[in-house]
Write a protein that binds this DNA or RNA. Sequence first.
DNA 1: CAACTAAATGGACTACAGTCCGTTTCGTGA
DNA 2: TCACGAAACGGACTGTAGTCCATTTAGTTG
Lengths: 201, 201
Amino acid sequence: MLEILRGRPPRERADAARNREKVLAAAARLFRDRGVDNVSMDAVAAEAGVGKGTLFRRFGDRSGLAAALLDERERELQERILSGPPPLGPGAPPAERLAAFVDAYLDYLFDHLDLVRVSETAAPGARYRIGAYRFWHRHVAILLALARPAADADCLAHALLAPLGAEHVVALRGELGDERIREGVRELALSVAGRGREGAG
Amino acid sequence: MLEILRGRPPRERADAARNREKVLAAAARLFRDRGVDNVSMDAVAAEAGVGKGTLFRRFGDRSGLAAALLDERERELQERILSGPPPLGPGAPPAERLAAFVDAYLDYLFDHLDLVRVSETAAPGARYRIGAYRFWHRHVAILLALARPAADADCLAHALLAPLGAEHVVALRGELGDERIREGVRELALSVAGRGREGAG
DNA sequence: CAACTAAATGGACTACAGTCCGTTTCGTGA
DNA sequence: TCACGAAACGGACTGTAGTCCATTTAGTTG
């Protein structure tokens, strides 16, 4: 029923849906038990009782599989941004919403760091092609445009998202620790948003 | 990389030095002729007339080979920063030096984008382990500490370097173009440096 | 110059991501 | 119920990064 309402022209065949669930469950189990980096695609296919071809046909590549596993969590955060309470949701001033986004995104990131890293780095340029990145970018760009009407918001939004890349955070977590990373990106966001008051240059 | 060239107690054997040169020459030739992304490590070894084991023993991995090829160019930029004319070299106010660094680094990056991308991404976390990254980070951190004494300069410096990552630039070059990327990062740098006057928060 | 040792060598080997394609299964329309 | 085309399947196959180790070689010492 639900699939019918999410109108997609070519409906998913029953065996395909069953296998997709089997793969997602197997991957979640293996990633949890052995750690994301110690699980090969062959292992996922074997654990799911599915051929390699099926696995790759369904998810494209390793980063696609990771993205599929993150989908629900991502969507939850997106909902809170679109229609949750301020300052993360609508209603607060742009700079405050920006800071709240950085905080909330880092909560999400720290909780799923290895998986997000795979979803962003397993294929070249994967991060920027994923739908989720487009969402974060659009959100940040809109807020920046409100806070700094004269600036190139699209470009600054990409630059602000760069230090939120999983690879960056993984590499610096040991040196800086979670809280300094959080404060640093927050500070960067507030600086570029004109500290919430300045307006355009 | 620096360790290899700086005097180490055990001197490099003659055959090792000869093979290193053969490999670097072969890699430069193949990368130029076929494009960095179309050259495998096997191809480099074959072109150099050297075994695979030798290639990896000398350069560690694919990103190490790329880093070795970039070494000279990197050093040239480092020299200009340490002792060249202002605003890139010493003498200009911190925010101006920061903007000059962004410009000069992007010149270097746009000129060698594919090779830098390999040096940063061929191995996980490679970017942050390379000696060059440490240099850029230290330079930016020192300038930020001068411009914003109360801020966490080390952390902000990492965040400012994030949008200068080759992967980021490669992914956005098509969407934004070189000049918007340049202006965006420059703007970010000036914002976080307090636009050159503000001082600490 | 010969013996000796630590370093260097090279190519077979492993592990893994991703592709290809002959075979099987699903859903449909008669 | 059956027949049939489209979609999905699975596992053999390919290409590549990186490892391992038996063999070779450079440099040193007497």
